[in-house]
Design a protein around this nucleic acid. Structure first.
Lengths: 358, 358
DNA sequence: TTGTAGGCGTTATCAG
DNA sequence: CTGATAACGCCTACAA
């Protein structure tokens, strides 16, 4: 781990000036003889450019930060999976921040943009506060927000459309003949919880179905809480024939409880999840789930940011990625008669490629 | 996005020298009056330190790279989840590399260490080649390898013990009274495939069970291939009473096929997976799975690296993380009578916290 | 074609 | 306690 060689070392060894070394290294016109000497010296010394010094001079780090709320959340991981290759192929390194769902940490990340250790930032905040907006307005590097920002905020942003997503699911259930469609939601004081709850109500209205408080159960976005919520719901409304769950974990909890209660899925009760995570394809019966396009949003965000990094100016852009419904066994047809369809889930096969090395 | 203020800007404004500014900013002894002037100027200008310039001067970037083969692989993600907080709390940023299982990319990462854009590297290579070893020997920054390296390699490394892992599973099945225990493996020319296959054979031998070629089926590490393999196995050996699967996806495929064949799990056939991914807890019946401690390995690797970054020298260290068996419904007792136990899986509840923002 | 010199933004040494 | 000044490693006018 001796001190690495610099262009000075090379210059000495090759008997030329550091300017010539730099020229050769950057492919600028130089005499053949000089090129040879420099290359030889560089090779022998095992020279590698110092990225920090280059950055200081060029004012570009070739790094982009992605700030996610939670490294454990599959939705963010889906974004990450798409963002990574896009940035990589454009020559950028990815700096990963996990803000642990702490707003102060998000603010820190925004603030640290001023340190110029990255050329740009993609951020998926839980909630956009006043502090966010101020820092965004003053940001010294391009930022793309994945999520919604207030109208008028001058930032590129890529949003999901959970309203339409819920509607796709409800329409699907309705088309299957279900009429007592319940909603199992997470807390209403979260952005997704509120949005999904409202969308459910609207979708019912548009179909001419009555909104019934008894059919709505609030729990939390976890499996155990989902199970508990569904158990209560079932006790109150035994005749429910479909469950719209606010995420996949809740839906898994629902399957647990339905099974224990002797209900068949989907014959007696159809179940729909949201987010279309890997778990949806893995469960049994496999889970119909609303994809809000996390992967797509990540990809679009990365591309928007790259545009800015290429110097493209212009008005802030707002992209909405359409949701889609991944239909699986938990709603469509008699699951118990179906032959297994291992390749069904669209995420199968790219998970867990080789196990882990010994 | 005007050019940000530097210590020069501040110095001018406060009417002091840049040296004084630097002192104040770094908390070095300075007259109160000077401190006040500098702080005031810095505040008004919204000054933020330039990380690149600091790095150039200090020769430390406060960044660490983690190179994984595949951003989609749950085993690596488990490592990432542990590595991230450890580094963060020590003040390091995480640079994420996905090498897409391409050896050349891994070599690139190793080579780029010379660019000094990070202070250290954690790498989980698929396979360690000669090229790896050469670069590791010449590395200009500390490296920790997650995985096995040849004896004598002078690098810290953290390894799993899949041999013991397989044995835990086989012993468990044996204790449950299973005697016709089959192995559904991935390709034998992969490191995990070979290791797991050999471990299976040994474990049987130690229990005094005969090794039977008919009980071994090779497929690939995916769900569909796993299903196919199990179907063949079942056709050949209808009386098999336990399946040791080389990873969780194969095990999910096994569940698909067993269900279609009318076999009950675990009454007729017990099933064990490996890697203990989120999918294991999500499936139904939930899957007993051998954890090779991916999370733990990530954590240990990060800690080893931090030691080195703190300047601790000494001989390369080799840590082996012990595997453990996560027992769930697919082996233990009559799954169909059990009440749902949504909180059972040890990864539940930290997955998909809030869904994705609208 | 090549070398000298200045600067990117900080930190740190060394006189005053 | 403070202010010049010299690095850190690289790039790039400008001059030779």
């Amino acid at each position: 781990m001796a001190d690495g060689p610099t262009i000075n070392t090379i210059a000495e060894r090759a008997g030329v000036s550091i300017a010539s070394v730099s020229r050769v290294l950057n492919g600028l016109p130089t005499r053949q003889e000089t090129v040879r000497k420099v290359m030889a010296a560089a090779d022998e010394l095992g020279y590698v450019r110092n990225a920090v010094a280059r950055s200081l001079k060029s004012r570009r780090t070739h790094q982009v930060a992605f700030a996610m709320a939670d490294v454990g959340n599959p939705a963010y991981l889906a974004m990450l999976r798409e963002i990574q290759p896009v940035l990589k192929s454009a020559g950028y390194r990815l700096v990963l921040h996990s803000t642990d769902a702490v707003v102060a940490d998000e603010i820190d990340v925004l603030h640290s943009l001023g340190e110029r250790y990255v050329d740009g930032l993609i951020m998926s905040p839980l909630r956009v506060t006043e502090a966010h907006l101020e820092l965004l307005a003053a940001a010294r590097a391009p930022v793309v927000i994945i999520g919604s920002v207030p109208d008028g905020t001058r930032v590129d942003n890529v949003r999901a459309d959970s309203g339409t997503g819920v509607r796709l699911a409800i329409d699907h259930l309705y088309a299957l003949g279900r009429r007592r469609i319940a909603m199992v939601n997470g807390p209403l004081d979260t952005v997704p919880g509120a949005a999904r709850g409202a969308a459910y109500r609207e979708a019912l209205g548009d179909l001419g179905l009555p909104y019934d408080d008894d059919l709505v159960q609030i729990g939390d976005f976890y499996r155990a809480e989902g199970a508990r919520a569904v158990a209560e719901l079932l006790a109150r409304v035994p005749g429910v024939d479909a469950l719209m769950c606010a995420n996949d974990l809740i839906a898994l909890g629902a399957l647990d409880v339905l099974r224990a209660a002797g209900k068949r899925v989907p014959e007696d009760v159809a179940v729909v999840g949201m987010d279309d995570t890997d778990l949806a394809a893995a469960s049994w019966p496999s889970l119909t789930s609303v994809s809000l396009g996390s992967a797509e949003r990540g990809k679009v965000a990365a591309e928007l940011l790259l545009d800015r990094l290429r110097g493209e100016g212009g008005e802030p852009r707002r992209v909405t990625v359409p949701p889609h419904l991944a239909v699986r066994a938990s709603t469509s047809g008699p699951a118990h008669d179906r032959t297994p369809d291992p390749g069904h889930g669209d995420t199968d096969g790219r998970t867990d490629r080789k196990g882990s090395g010994a």
